[in-house]
Design a protein around this nucleic acid. Sequence first.
DNA 1: TTACAGATGATAAGAATTATTGTTTAATAA
DNA 2: TTATTAAACAATAATTCTTATCATCTGTAA
Lengths: 143, 143
Amino acid sequence: MTIATATRFRQVCAEHGLTATHQRQILFEVLQGMTGHPSPEKVYAKVKRRIPSVSLATVYKNIHLFIASGIFREVSLHHGSLRVEVNSRPHHHLVCTVCRSISDIDEKDLGLLQKPKTLSSGFLVERYAVDVLGRCPSCQEKP
Amino acid sequence: MTIATATRFRQVCAEHGLTATHQRQILFEVLQGMTGHPSPEKVYAKVKRRIPSVSLATVYKNIHLFIASGIFREVSLHHGSLRVEVNSRPHHHLVCTVCRSISDIDEKDLGLLQKPKTLSSGFLVERYAVDVLGRCPSCQEKP
DNA sequence: TTACAGATGATAAGAATTATTGTTTAATAA
DNA sequence: TTATTAAACAATAATTCTTATCATCTGTAA
């Protein structure tokens, strides 16, 4: 790591009120150097190369901390257990970033899509699923 | 249940090549009568009221079967383990409905959003996350 | 430099899901 | 209707992913 990177990490920690520990710094650097959508286990494997004594729990805790601080995001707020969609009407989802509650919004009420059916990447489009992320009414009261 | 419902269930099973068992029929009816985004446990609880001997594993297996057949959907293909988003550019996701692989597409390349910032429901919009669902190049070969 | 709040590592515990196995049932043909 | 047989079922063990617990250790501010 460069001194610039270390300095930047300390700045980020200061901004978010986090203690600048060695484990966090390595985790930060590892995450920045990864591509795609790594799982905690994958991240752990990389951190472990640089800190062999690191614990998986520490990786989990600090990933959550980085996400809570807004330093990184999670790929989807829907991860977790399986949920069945029983609404057969075309609709999308309002997902609360605080409590993770999901409510439905009819496709026509969202009214923002002009669906291109082909994408240059060779991906065959079947449909779009839009998550509107934000705060549900009851979570707008809390700060 | 009405005779019409039973008949419809048998039709659905015939269409998808499924054996029409009692457990499946009750599960089908229970799902149709639920709202929101129920978990397998919630569904199991309801089925159990009508078939006290039913097993949770049966509910899981048949929910998966219904989803595989396209009779119901799952709320999100992202459920499962936590994934970290390490791409800090504004982007959305191409999600393969067959292998569940995720790839990124730049927001500007998707080009379909006109973001309304307010929704009538009192939901405070922060941002949109679009999943383009379909088949990735390697899954287009299989039938 | 020291005190201490907070972080870490080791590991137990918990929740969600899947696999295994012996028994029962639905679909079909006689 | 009954016999046959592949498929589905219930019970439960096993697995996977994640969180909680707790005894040390460390970063920070005084």
